[in-house]
Simulated scan of single mutants.
Amino acid sequence: MKQLSEMSEREYFAWVGQRPGTFVGRTSFHSLAAFLTGYDQHAIRHGGPGLAGWREWLVARRGKDCNHTWPGLVLHIALPGGWDNMWDLSTDDEQHAITILFQLLDEFAADQEASKGAHGPG
């Protein structure tokens, strides 16, 4: 297995998605959103891209803007029929939202990689 420092963003997100409880304890959509927000802030602080463009990518993916931050947009995509209380999702909705979160992260990271390849480094 690669060292963490050798992983691409896409590989890292896949690795976290395979074992989310290792990173957040009790696995929930909101604890993973908090983890990813911390990841983003750390990357920005240390000169990395973090999740730059993630919210805009989700808006384009959903095809409609709203005033939600990115976790709300992911929930809109994962649960298009809505939910009663976003802080108390049913077990099935929670698991589905987590699955969709990591699928979307994979697609986003793939798009970022393809964009970098098309435009060269930097």
Rank of each mutant, 00 (worst) to 15 (best):
A109S: 13
P49S: 02
A52W: 08
A52T: 12
R45W: 14
N67M: 10
D111A: 11
G81A: 12
A109H: 00
S28M: 02
G47L: 03
I44T: 07
A109L: 07
A109T: 01
G47P: 01
W87D: 15
F35C: 03
F108N: 05
D106I: 00
F29Q: 06
A33N: 07
D92I: 13
I98D: 08
S28Y: 09
D88Y: 02
D92P: 03
P80M: 10
L104V: 05
L58F: 01
D84S: 01
A97G: 08
Q95N: 05
R55Y: 15
L79D: 09
F29Y: 00
G72I: 09
Y39S: 09
A110T: 12
Q41W: 06
A97I: 08
R62I: 03
P49K: 04
T91C: 11
H68S: 05
L73S: 12
D84H: 00
E107L: 06
G38R: 07
G81K: 01
H46P: 03
N85G: 13
Q103H: 15
D106Y: 00
L89N: 08
G53L: 04
Q95S: 01
R62M: 05
G63K: 13
N85K: 10
D65A: 09
C66Y: 12
W54N: 02
I98E: 04
H46A: 06
T99W: 14
N85D: 15
G63M: 12
Q95L: 03
D106A: 11
L73D: 15
G72R: 04
D88T: 05
F35A: 02
F102I: 00
